[in-house]
Write a protein that binds this DNA or RNA. Structure first.
Length: 416
RNA sequence: GCGGUCGUAGCUCAGGUGGUAGAGCGCCAGGUUGUGGUCUUGGAUGUCGCGGGUUCGAGUCCCGUCGAUCGCCCCA
């Protein structure tokens, strides 16, 4: 035997219960988002590298050190998508849809980041994603958040999850705030953690979000964005909170939410939980008003979120909400002589919409064992005398009871 | 990219101070000639993650490596 090949670091197979949880998350999101008028798109899982380098910001961690980038055989610079939003904006422009806005888009699929794996963090993982493209109204922000909240409710996991919202302001607000933060932290540079001294150069906003105890003491007295908001930014922020109330979505304000991707402005939010270890964000996003322009389209103010399917699935598991496997009916010929008739019976049941299995070999005992192990709900047993009389033994595998049923009445009997 | 812990049958795990591997579950076969789940009898299974080193001898000690896991960073 050849040596066993291992799965690539940070990748996982989805099988059995794991697949069912994963599928439940995506199906629920698909159904609820459709209810809210979102239309599903599927864009490529790899794009021209520039889609992400331009879109997410060259200095962001995702772009600078986490992308799976390579040259294809034609020499093109290609990147496996590390998130969904940039590709969706590119698709909007490529398909000439920028003039058909607003558009409400749902998407789901794999994304890739070269990171150190950890609980709730993989190199290939899956996201569900919701975007409203081409609406500057705070109502759009609230709608996207509210729909996300309803997806979580529908999944049954909203108990342990809380919504935190913040405003990053518009560009003038943020510029002013940024300068004030740099001034403040530079004055206390030596008291900052090593990480935060580095952040001071790269992304001072992130210091606000530091977990370091020393940093937090400083952050407590740091300026807040409140004082730097323009009238417009303040109006957006006020309206968002009013609309969330109107949608009936509970939320808290958290000025420490800054988000890692450069394209956000105004609204930033996260649904967080303490049930997943260090990776507490289960759904996160915000408003991005410049991204479509980066893709070569017209100014298209937009808002959206991405959510980790694996993380949501972990919450399903923790909540004992793993979907049950479907229970089939097993058709069992007693001997080879009844095999063809059994095949016909199985076919008729499937035709009637009843999930049916029929094994490829084995005697009655063996097939009964198989049916039991597979969690079948019933066994339809066909022997010589049954076939001769046009009936089957229908055995209820839970109750252990057995009755004779005419073959032409089987489907109706099993449907109820 | 940094630090901690871990890696033995399909699964969960046991294997004092080094002497070439065990349990439970599962799997296979029988007790039942046309009936599963309970019971019972018997059976198979491992390059002890991988590579190297120390040793007469390593699952057990040392080094490296791969992977998992927890935290940092970052994020979904």
């Amino acid at each position: 035997m050849a040596t066993k090949l291992q799965p690539v670091r940070g990748t996982h197979d989805l099988i059995g219960e794991g697949f069912r949880r994963h599928h439940r998350v995506i199906e629920t999101a698909r159904r609820v988002s459709a209810l809210w008028g979102f239309e599903e798109w599927a864009t490529p899982i790899f794009e021209d590298t520039r889609v992400f380098s331009r879109g997410l910001g060259e200095t962001s961690d995702v772009v600078s050190k986490e992308m799976y980038s390579f040259q294809d055989r034609g020499g093109e610079g290609i990147t496996l998508r590390p998130e969904m939003t940039a590709g969706i904006c590119r698709a909007l422009v490529s398909n000439g849809l920028a003039q058909s806005v607003p558009l409400k888009v749902f998407a789901a699929g794999p994304v890739f980041r070269y990171e150190r794996p950890q609980a709730g963090r993989q190199r290939q993982f899956h996201q569900i994603d919701l975007e409203i493209l081409g609406s500057a109204e705070p109502l759009a922000d609230a709608e996207v958040i509210a729909c996300g909240w309803h997806i979580q409710r529908e999944l049954g996991i909203s108990e342990g999850v809380t919504l935190e919202v913040n405003t990053l302001g518009d560009t003038p607000s943020r510029e002013g705030y940024r300068s004030a933060l740099i001034a403040y932290f530079t004055a206390h540079r030596d008291a900052l953690s090593e990480d935060s001294q580095r952040r001071l150069e790269k992304n001072p906003l992130r210091i606000i979000d530091s977990k370091d105890a020393k940093d937090r003491a400083l952050v407590a007295d740091a300026p807040t964005i409140e004082a730097f908001l323009t009238d417009e930014a303040r109006a957006h922020w006020d309206a968002l909170r009013r609309h969330l109330d109107a949608f009936g979505v509970p939320f808290g304000e958290n000025p420490r939410i800054v988000r890692g991707l450069d394209y956000y402005s105004h609204t930033a939010f996260e649904f967080v939980t303490d049930r997943l270890g260090a990776q507490g964000t289960v759904m996160g996003g915000g408003r991005y008003n410049g991204l479509v322009e980066e893709m070569g389209g017209p100014a298209t103010p937009s808002v959206g979120w991405g959510a980790g399917v694996e993380r949501l699935a972990m919450l399903l598991e923790a909540g004992g909400l793993t979907p049950l496997a479907p229970r089939l009916v097993h058709v069992i010929p007693v001997s080879a002589a009844e095999e063809e008739e059994a095949l016909r019976v199985a076919g008729a049941l499937r035709e009637a919409g009843i999930a049916t299995e029929m094994g490829h070999k084995g005697n009655l005992k063996r097939r009964m064992e198989r049916a039991n192990k597979a969690g079948a709900r019933a066994a339809v047993i066909l022997g010589e005398s049954e076939v001769a009389r046009g009936i089957a033994q229908l055995r209820d595998l839970d109750a252990g009871t057995q009755e004779e049923v005419a073959l032409d009445g089987l489907a109706a009997r099993l449907a109820r």
